[in-house]
Design a protein around this nucleic acid. Sequence first.
DNA 1: TTTACATATGAACAATTGCTCATATGTTCA
DNA 2: TGAACATATGAGCAATTGTTCATATGTAAA
Lengths: 117, 117
Amino acid sequence: MTENEIKISCNLTENDAGELRKKFPIEEEIQDLSEFFKVFGDSTRLRILFLLKEGEFCVHDISIMVDMNQTAVSHQLKSLRQARLVKYRKDGKQVFYSLNDEHINEILAIGLRHINE
Amino acid sequence: MTENEIKISCNLTENDAGELRKKFPIEEEIQDLSEFFKVFGDSTRLRILFLLKEGEFCVHDISIMVDMNQTAVSHQLKSLRQARLVKYRKDGKQVFYSLNDEHINEILAIGLRHINE
DNA sequence: TTTACATATGAACAATTGCTCATATGTTCA
DNA sequence: TGAACATATGAGCAATTGTTCATATGTAAA
């Protein structure tokens, strides 16, 4: 800390603050990132993601496997679609969902490791 | 699909369902995991985490850097503490917070990669 | 073309969340 | 001891979220 720096408090000076801010993601990235993680912050959506790790499933089968009614599942699939975590394929009356992102397994694995420590 | 399996719908049989369920985390893990990810799903907490990546900071400096008042920051630090994402060290009147988990950088990095694709 | 099936969607409601305000706790220094 | 400072916490409120209900859309089979 040089003489002419103004100390804000504790260890931080105005110069430090300026330098630090340069290292942070911009506000828009922070917003997008929090939206992204919010999607993982719900047990129904997590159950759907763990199911889809095993393959492609139609909405009805998903609702059976996660033990939620079809409407609730459709709403959650919409969230997952908007977060670009799942993709879908229509086949006749049915819609088959699958994972759309190779990061999902990684993220889930890290999370599991954390909570089991 | 063998003859005596009951088809639930789409491709899924009762046997498939049973086999699949064995692969899933138990309900308690799912709950813990969603709580864990929920913590990342808020922009204020993310800003705090990105700050703490750069080192150890007292509460007052954190509140300056993330541009939130002290009370809001204290509440969010409590969440981060409960999720075991940060640790703290008391020194006189001040409390210094830092990251408590080597997974945090990984998770943030994967998230950033996803939203920037 | 009617009927049944598969999925999606909008509105409503309860539950949860994040912030603010007021205040409590704990520490240092005069 | 008392004043100033740093942090934490509980209550209250507005905003957001997840589920359900009712219904719409789209496809296929009769």
